[in-house]
């Protein structure tokens, strides 16, 4: 082809691309950060919620701290990663094969609260109101993300309910489409064996009725209950 002999093929937009590349070179030529610092910033940026500016602030802060403190942080990171795994019963994060909650004798062993994520366990624990045990599914059913029931710890939950003669399963999963579907699925599986409930949805405490949106209000109406 005749095009092969040309030094370059003038495709549409090549001038813009050259310009971008040129800009890129100019920006990269003088190194702003020393290499190890650049690497640290790069790594910090991978963390959720950390952008380039925060990463730079954190990195510069770390450099100012005494060696021992930085050493301790590094050690803590490595230790946490190597020592924390999943509880073999409830799949909550745990340093032991069985987590503190599952081992605790003071907890009601006949109630299980089903949540999507370990973060939800922490949120519920902060209330100090729930005295039963947990089961962490590890996500929600979402075919778009390739997550089916097999990818979640649902089988283990059913097994647990059967084996431990559980009296009540409380489902505490967010009211999204995926959350509702997961709730439906878990509910259907467990209904034959035990009592299955779902946490109520409605108004936040201290919230004004007039500021609540229609969907929340409609849901709150659905979940109304007898005045006692």
């Amino acid at each position: 082809m005749s095009g092969d002999f040309l030094p370059f093929t003038p495709v549409a937009g090549y001038r813009k691309r050259l310009l971008i590349e040129w800009k890129f070179c100019v920006r990269r030529l003088p190194p702003i950060y020393a290499r190890p610092l650049a690497r640290l910033i790069e790594e910090l940026q991978k963390l959720p919620g950390v952008g380039p500016k925060t990463a730079q602030r954190l990195a510069l802060h770390l450099l100012k701290r005494p060696d021992s403190e930085v050493q301790a942080l590094a050690q803590a990171l490595v230790d946490a990663k190597s020592q924390i795994g999943y509880c073999s019963i409830c799949f909550h994060l745990s340093a032991e094969p069985v987590c503190d909650i599952c081992r605790s004798p003071s907890r009601d062993a006949q109630t299980i609260c089903v949540v999507a994520d370990s973060r939800d366990v922490i949120a519920l624990e902060k209330t100090r109101e729930y005295k039963g045990k947990y089961h962490v599914l590890g996500g929600l059913i979402s075919p778009m993300d390739g997550i089916g029931p097999e990818q979640l710890s649902i089988g283990q939950l059913v097994h647990r309910v059967n084996k431990d003669k559980i009296q009540e399963v409380i489902i505490a999963i967010s009211p999204t489409i995926e959350g509702d579907t997961t709730t439906l699925y878990v509910g259907q599986l467990l209904k034959p064996f035990t009592r299955v409930t779902r946490i109520a949805f409605g108004l936040p405490m201290g919230g004004d009725l007039e500021y609540a949106d229609e969907v929340t209000l409609a849901r709150a109406l659905e979940g109304r209950r007898e005045l006692d």
Binding site: S142, P143, M144, G146, G148, I177, E178, T181, E214, V215, A218
Partner: peptide, 22 residues
């Protein structure tokens, strides 16, 4: 509210289609 309901329906539809494609 209809905007919300329709959005939810489309989300469920997308998920179901994803499953059918799998």
């Amino acid at each position: 509210v209809y905007a919300h309901i329709l959005g939810q329906y489309h989300q469920a539809l997308k998920q179901r289609n994803a499953l059918l494609r799998q």
